[in-house]
């Protein structure tokens, strides 16, 4: 027997319904895409190291696999480019395709010592599509008027900011792994700017939910006091933003803690980035029909 096919007709009551269609696979896809695209841009334009770009593309490939695993008919993925005029998923799929294509071509041209302007042009194109890939998951959610807590301009902004900070955290790990620890201080200082901005946007989003209609308030309750509060308050906010902010600030004051703090903070930020997406997806509430 298959699982219930529709959350609306599970109990036949006209009440709030929690969306159950998008869960861990989608959170993972959006998270990995944000990590990879964010790190690609940082490693291309700020901390260019051999292998760093290639490493950044692995999470993007992982995001693609996560998406494929969740499709009912994965062999029809190619059709996902068919509705570019209306569907943000179509536009996102196209941007990810071009991002990967240009990024791999740029890597190839660098390795084969092509004329100096060609890799740069390819990296610029890859960066443009990486930016769209960082934005698109939030734009998909905000295009759904069915779920008021997603249907907000703050959701794309939050996902975009989270892509930057998770990409940055991945970059810290890459700098550590590739023996470029001297670059850590400026990379971590960027975190001191991005964490408070993300926190501020999150607070604005939460306060608009708390003051909104019944479904928005129900979503807010789930995130702050309900079933998801552990994941959201403890994980996404506490572990993913506040704790790294403190760790980074302490490490910048005491440089001898820099490497340890970078390692710990990056793991916290990455876990928090996943939990942020997961809890926002799971707090999607349909208002009562009547």
């Amino acid at each position: 027997m298959s699982r219930p096919a529709n959350v609306f007709s599970e109990n036949y009551s006209i009440d709030f319904k929690l969306q159950q269609v998008w869960s861990i696979p989608h959170a993972l896809e959006f998270f990995l895409l944000g990590v990879g695209a964010g790190q690609y841009i940082l490693s291309t334009w700020f901390w260019p190291l051999p292998w760093a770009q290639l490493i950044s593309l692995l999470p993007v490939l992982g995001a693609g696999l996560s998406l494929l695993a969740d499709l009912g008919r994965p062999e029809r993925l190619w059709r996902a480019l068919a509705n570019l005029r209306q569907s943000w998923i179509s536009r996102g799929a196209l941007s990810v395709f071009f991002f990967l294509a240009f990024a791999f071509l740029a890597l190839f041209s660098r390795w084969t010592s092509s004329p100096s302007q060609l890799p740069l042009a390819l990296e610029s194109a890859a960066t443009l599509f990486a930016l769209i890939a960082m934005l698109y998951p939030g734009l998909v959610l905000s295009s759904y008027a069915s779920i008021p807590s997603w249907n907000s301009p703050m959701v794309p902004l939050l996902f975009f900011l989270s892509s930057w900070i998770t990409g940055l955290a991945a970059e810290w790990l890459v700098l550590l792994a590739l023996g470029a620890a001297r670059e850590l201080a400026p990379a971590m200082a960027l975190g001191l700017v991005l964490f408070p901005i993300t926190l501020l946007c999150l607070l604005i989003h939460l306060s608009s939910m708390a003051r909104g209609g019944a479904a928005l308030r129900e979503g807010y309750r789930l995130l702050v006091r309900g079933l998801l509060s552990g994941w959201f308050v403890g994980g996404a906010v506490g572990m993913g933003l506040l704790l790294p902010l403190v760790l980074v600030a302490v490490a910048l004051i005491n440089p001898e803690w820099l490497e340890f703090s970078a390692l710990l903070s990056s793991l916290f930020v990455l876990a928090g980035g996943f939990l942020l997406r997961y809890s926002i997806l799971k707090a999607g509430v349909y208002p009562p029909l009547f």
Binding site: Q19, V21, D70, R73, P74, A80, S146, I147, L289
Partner: peptide, 14 residues
């Protein structure tokens, strides 16, 4: 249909 379930989430009526 590729089974993305995007339509299911987008429909306000279930």
């Amino acid at each position: 249909c590729c089974g993305s379930k995007a339509c299911i989430a987008a429909c306000p009526y279930g």
